[in-house]
Design a binder for these strands. Sequence first.
DNA 1: CTGTTAGCGCGTTCAG
DNA 2: CTGAACGCGCTAACAG
Lengths: 367, 367
Amino acid sequence: MHDPTERVSIRDIAKAAETSVSTVSRALNDHPDVSPETRERIMRIAEAYGYERNMFAHGLISGRSGLISVIMPNIDYDYQLQFLRGMAHAAERFDQELLLTVKETASDTIDACRSLYRRGISDGAIVFQPPVEGAAALRELQAAGFPMVAFHPPFPMPGLTSVEPMDHEGAMMAVRHLLALGHQRIGIIVEDTQRTAGQERLRGYEDALREAGVSLDPALVIVVPPNQPHASGRAGIQQWLAAGTDFSAVFCFNDLVAYGAIQELAAHDRRVPEDVSVVGFDDIPASLHYGRAGLTTVKQPITQIGELALETLLHLCDGGTTPGQRIQVPVELVVRGTSSAARQPRIWDDSVVRPEPPTASEPLEPL
Amino acid sequence: MHDPTERVSIRDIAKAAETSVSTVSRALNDHPDVSPETRERIMRIAEAYGYERNMFAHGLISGRSGLISVIMPNIDYDYQLQFLRGMAHAAERFDQELLLTVKETASDTIDACRSLYRRGISDGAIVFQPPVEGAAALRELQAAGFPMVAFHPPFPMPGLTSVEPMDHEGAMMAVRHLLALGHQRIGIIVEDTQRTAGQERLRGYEDALREAGVSLDPALVIVVPPNQPHASGRAGIQQWLAAGTDFSAVFCFNDLVAYGAIQELAAHDRRVPEDVSVVGFDDIPASLHYGRAGLTTVKQPITQIGELALETLLHLCDGGTTPGQRIQVPVELVVRGTSSAARQPRIWDDSVVRPEPPTASEPLEPL
DNA sequence: CTGTTAGCGCGTTCAG
DNA sequence: CTGAACGCGCTAACAG
């Protein structure tokens, strides 16, 4: 027996097993050239001593640390915790440790990746929503031998493996759902159309309306700046109400935007879903219990996505895949309490002049 | 100049500076015995090459990795993200990397700590809500030379440095607030009174009532099992309503419990705060925008606590402190929309038989 | 099958 | 002030 709390080296067990360190090393690493008895004896002793190999020594020679990095810009959306959870699970399954780095600016993000690589600290990295300006640098790093997976990149980055949700599909599901409930005047509050997420969700919104033969009204599209979801939701509703825009349903960029929108609607005595239906995106945990009966939203399997990202990265690290593939993850509509049938057929449906027939609409500029 | 993406070793820059590796090492580490010119030249070149020292080599010799671990049981409460955020900030300030480990069971948690130490991976660990069963093992590890900080331990663990919020104070603030609003029948839904958190919050509740000369009614105390806050909140309210217990205010173990309670109240057409005032604990980000005007709650400065925990740990690592101190972090009442003045003086205040005078009350057994 | 030896990249002795 | 040599813990290549 041995103090399970003491550090123990390969030498200690060599001494105890009365053999040389190299034999021990071979036994421990399943090399062929060890006699069954010696191996058995060594393994027993190693077990008893609770041997665990030193990371530095192993890393120095193997060139791998067993550490995987996640790099996130800011860290404030519950979504990220779910993502981390998935990664942590996968990491455990593969006996990897998880390194968390938070960098706010684009250049800091790039620097962090580079540094992690150059110091030999991590074997690869998952870059969470990589900055627009970082595309070239990331590709270079990848090429230089540092495996990376971009989660939800701002745009397709050739040469960089990426994992992303099906934004377009999700948006279509949301809007089709609202259409099926009889809504015609459906608004969208969408973040930052410079990035795929915003672009694709907006496109999905438009395509669903077009598909249903519902006219696109630019007044129903509100583009908001990123990173202030709650305020954006409120602002979007305010803008419509102030302009007297007619709407009976809103598709929101994400769940937090939806919360903001609902709160603003409440402040103006519009009831959800009786007066206005609201659909979010992401399905963060809070949405399950949101309000009386939960938020209707497009669910991303966030935790699984985290696992998938990590698995994909490990695969890359092992040279099992060539970089550059783009993995799209299906999303799913979850109907809960914030959406319901449109109250009544709109009067202008039959009597008043209808808006222009379906046509492409330019999104508004960011606020 | 040099490819900023290439790995560069101390040898490379020795060659470029036309000197030996040891001189370079000395220059880089601010040792005295280097001539100003040589140092200058070396620094310039290192800068140009973007030299960063190899973690393995450095760790092997220095015995330190520059990695700090956080170990969390599960990972699902938004609170944890805020905590991580604080740690990430502090880690960056001190040029440390952050390792995230999630272990569900007590023995896995202990094993993880031990392994992290014995493999040399991390210089120390912050153990988030350490398991009850782990106390002895953690103390041993600490004694063996692995610095640890326990965040919110289940009970005071002598010999282990800990950081924890002022549970008792916070509970008193919450209940005093409700008392000041004129509430007399104040319930508490508290998690798991085996751990300090539950114990102290319950004690604070009792002390505040006692202080105000309000009788303690065991029927107003509901103890719920841990890890299902939302359901617990609902269950608590249900229990009171089913039993016909009179109450006009509820102090909840945390914000999620409060959400559950409010939802259940709504389901029974009790309005918050008009019919029932509700106060939470923690102040997670969602509470700011909760409902119409936010959740009244006891705010833990979570992010700062994360920073503090990390700083405390680093201090320990540097031998600046002896293990064992217990750091209590002040909390603060945040009054928002879910608490308001009691509707009317309770009739029985003057006419009906009052419950027993103030006396210690046994908490109920967990559900 | 086994033990000895070199070296991974760096910091730290030592002589010079 | 500088450079060469050693060793951190481990593995791979080479002798035996």
